[in-house]
Design a protein around this nucleic acid. Structure first.
Lengths: 334, 334
DNA sequence: ACAGTCCATGACAACGCTGTCTAAATCTGT
DNA sequence: ACAGATTTAGACAGCGTTGTCATGGACTGT
């Protein structure tokens, strides 16, 4: 249980009878050291269980090998999937990923961003929650690139990686229309976020392309986190003029809808947004996307900006794809 | 696009006409500074957009506010759920979480552990993959606590947080037996990991308690990552003496089993291990656990060890709970 | 044999911050 | 009004590393 002292460059240097700088070179620019010396240094380092201190290294070099990811909640599979993609690319480039979650509040976002910036992350990746990211503008000017994921940052010059939401919703809606559906519901909660706004727009564009100009009476754009998805769907189906098809704007609504539809003999068609584990078993058609790839692209964008913080910002759009599994392909039972 | 210089303590000190140390105090021991001075310093800091550098602070203090988590793959919901619990507790205690994944290989594990240790994490949490973690013994003696999650570390003195695997499997098996099942299968892949070994033992103990001494003919303990879960289940049910109930040792096997059982008129009873998103909709009974809590407890253990690296190591056991949802409660159709 | 190169190594300061010690100014009680 | 305690602030060094520059010896070509 004895706690020994951690060996430093100087300790190794002393043992190997060389200068600290030579030891430093062995661990970072080996080619500048003669093989014999290097070997002696390595032997000494091994004996002392020496391990270079990245933190000190970065302090001196002014660099940083960490990248911060500000996330709503790691529990949400979407975030953790994106984080997977990030981590893979970053690890391949010698960077480590620091994850911090915001509890999905704007204050939380600012607080954790602050913590990460104090750690001098080389770049800040985030899924913005708040309405305004202008508080990061200073840091960006100080050379810390900000990459916004899933939704664009507001009031801030930042690169972003987003989904092809509108097209995804458009094609889901069109697919239902092509099968004869005219009364197509769109349900989501919360609705007041970028992704839903985009999806709703895609949905409406598709409906409009079929001749209907005004918003449909089957839209349920909620903003109450406590709303019960199943109840919303049940209400919808109890209407006089009930929809024959439902598009669920996100996973939670989709699973809520499933709970209701399960017990129906002639359930309405259902298309979800965002794929989930058992969707194929359940035969649920969804508008899917590759969240790992989203993370990957975001990380690559970050690495690029770390190299060159100047230059125009970019927006990368990740494609979505309608996957037919049955639930979205049956015609209206009317 | 101009990149300004980042302000340091000294810059702020100069602007506020005080010594750097005073500025330092304002940001860490405010009560030792007179209110007037503090205010002046804060004003100067604000004007310069100064942000204390945690890295430099830690370098001097010899401490660290980061904790590393070595993980197989963030994509796996179990890992990301544990990470959630970790992150919550760590954030509450002013620490940030660095996540690094190993691709589930022993070499990967050693490599990323090395990277994290070079970052001087205050503690190393890990889900061990390799057969031997003795390579960490040196670091532990150097004062970096190691906490092993989900499985105990091998050849290393380390605290650990594991599930009540054996009891979970035992009670699942007994529950099936109580409903009249005598031919109970246990399927898992891979089988050569601690958690499965424990679960299998619990299963066998339960079977033995019913009178059967030797291993059952319905065990399918695979170790081929490429094995198709559905095919294994189909084979099992095609036996002359087919089982009337199945216990799936993990999520993947459980979902595989579902795919087969779905099409059967009289499916065998099924109990899975580890809960999943749509298990309630699908009516799948499972032995469940609270992975967030696992993370939480691991983090608390880590914090405790950071405070006091000496002292006896502990093993925390997280309870498992059998959740009845239907699939595991029907009697044998024989 | 001699200037001009090249190579291996080292001395020194600095990265941004804080622990430790010291000094001066202010306050306390009598 | 004075010793002693307390408050406030600064000087200095050092955390573990590396950038920069300097040094000395071994090479090259003529």
């Amino acid at each position: 249980m004895s706690i020994r002292q951690r060996a430093t460059l100087d300790d190794v240097a002393r043992l190997a009878h060389v200068s600290p700088k030579t030891v430093s070179r062995v661990f970072s620019q080996r080619h500048l050291v003669s093989p014999a010396t290097a070997e002696a240094v390595l032997a000494a380092a091994k004996r002392l269980k020496f391990r270079p201190n990245t933190v000190a290294r970065n302090l001196r070099g002014g660099a940083s090998n960490t990248v911060g990811f500000v996330i709503g909640e790691l529990l949400n599979p979407f975030y953790s999937t994106v984080a997977t993609g990030l981590e893979r690319v970053l690890a391949d480039n010698g960077k480590t990923l620091i994850v911090a979650s915001t509890d999905d509040t704007a204050e939380g976002e600012e607080r954790v961003a602050d913590t990460l910036l104090a750690q001098r992350v080389a770049a800040l990746l985030m899924v913005p929650v708040g309405e305004d990211q202008s508080y990061l503008e200073g840091e960006r000017q100080l050379g810390c690139p900000v990459i916004s994921i899933d939704r664009p940052a507001r009031n801030l010059v930042a690169d972003s990686v987003v989904l092809e939401n509108r097209t995804g919703a458009f094609s889901a809606t069109r697919s239902l229309m092509a099968r004869g559906h005219r009364k197509i519901a769109y349900i989501c909660n919360p609705a007041a976020v970028y992704t839903q706004a985009e999806r709703i727009q895609g949905y409406r564009e598709a409906i409009a392309s079929g001749g209907r100009a005004e918003p449909t009476p089957w839209e349920r754009l909620l903003d109450d986190p406590a709303a019960n998805p199943a109840a919303v769907v049940a209400d919808l189906l109890a209407m006089d003029d009930a929809p024959t098809a439902i598009i669920a704007g996100n996973n939670r609504m989709c699973i809520g809808a499933l709970q209701v539809l399960d017990s129906l003999e002639h359930p309405p068609a259902l298309i979800g947004f965002d794929d989930f584990d058992t969707a194929d078993i359940l035969g649920v058609s969804v508008v899917s996307h590759d969240a790992v790839d989203m993370g990957r692209q975001a990380a690559e964008l970050a690495l690029e900006r770390i190299m060159d913080p100047t230059g125009f910002t970019r927006q990368i759009i990740i494609p979505t794809k309608l996957i037919h599994r049955g639930s979205g392909e049956h015609p209206p039972y009317a």
